[in-house]
Design a protein around this nucleic acid. Structure first.
Lengths: 192, 192
DNA sequence: GTCTATAGCGCGATAGAC
DNA sequence: GTCTATCGCGCTATAGAC
């Protein structure tokens, strides 16, 4: 197998495991079984678990933020962009074998068990998302696509917390259907 | 040491560890060091880890819901009750050594690694909180203490998701101060 | 680049003395 | 009720053959 294909397969497997079970329940053994190579071979590509986590977060952040940037630079009105943005989280939930939370949401719970480099990448993901949401809300409010009391930065943090929390909680009960209904409720709140 | 004192000390230590690090990073070894007894002695009180988790959740749910019930049955107006309810989560964050999330919020991330009895107790906590929030919002809307578009049940789920999410995320950056500011933003949204 | 084999540790759990 | 001692397993990680 070409080196990058194996690397990708390992990262895919690790990401799936973490999004369902968390980083502390993810192991080289699990990955090795799902990828079809031996534990020792994983160490060739990613010497330590901390190293694997860092690479995974780099890929995840880059991919996710790229999608957000494309979405937010489209010509849609701001309210529609927000709905689509929340749809990204909904899509995560339905990805593959189902019941996946956001990678960085899961790692937020386990934040104090991570190495400093991985923890920084989790923080980066939060900050970048809130930044982009803040300007979306700002622009939309100016144009009249949103109508809300309070300030855009605080509302951005609120919406992002809500999305990360909802993704975790609907896995316990309600699933995608419940996520959709609270998503719509969120839209109601920012348009009144 | 009297049996119940030791039991309590073990539960306290386990709860602290889980609220900071998660259930999969909590171990009998850590507890034994913090309580000052040997690992084997913990097994006398709680034969298995699953058993310990169930007892801990039973205590946590009972305590928390009792406080909520007292709070919601007071004579305060509904908006003040909501603010105080959100204050319970804020207090968790500042409890003891700091940076603690809600016990059931942490376990939500690790839900699929828990035994079925513990997972059911986590679900119970979510459902009971949303139930109580739903009727608070309903009552407050009727009396004019709240003004929001949409329906009370969905908004209750939204607020609860937000609180659990925010508690996890502000540990990465912002802490209590950030929690307070998004809490106020939430109040703004339900009163307009 | 992947393999076998193994080191070394921390984990949950048990047996039996006191 | 707490102790010492120990078991067996899964973990991350390394050495060295192919």
């Amino acid at each position: 197998m070409a080196i990058n294909d194996t690397k990708t397969a390992i990262l895919d497997s690790a990401q799936d495991l973490i999004q369902r079970l968390g980083a502390n329940a993810m192991s080289y053994d699990h990955i090795s079984k799902s990828v079809g190579i031996r534990k020792a071979s994983i160490h060739y590509h990613f010497p330590t678990k901390e190293n694997l986590l860092e690479s995974l977060l780099e890929r995840y952040n880059e991919n996710f933020l790229k999608i957000v940037d494309d979405l937010f630079s489209s010509s849609d009105p701001e309210d529609k962009k927000l709905l689509k943005y929340m749809g990204l989280f909904e899509a995560t939930l339905q990805d593959g074998d189902h019941d996946k939370a956001c990678l960085c949401g899961m790692l937020g719970a386990e934040l104090f068990t991570l190495g400093p480099a991985a923890a920084d990448r989790v923080r980066y993901f939060y900050n970048e998302n809130e930044k982009r949401l803040t300007s979306l809300l700002d622009n939309g409010k100016k144009k009249g696509n949103f109508k809300f009391k309070g300030n855009s930065k605080k509302l951005a943090a609120l919406i992002f917390s809500f999305l990360e929390g909802a993704l975790l909680l609907v896995r316990a009960e309600g699933g995608v259907k419940k996520f959709q209904s609270v998503k719509e409720q969120m839209m109601d709140l920012v348009k009144s």
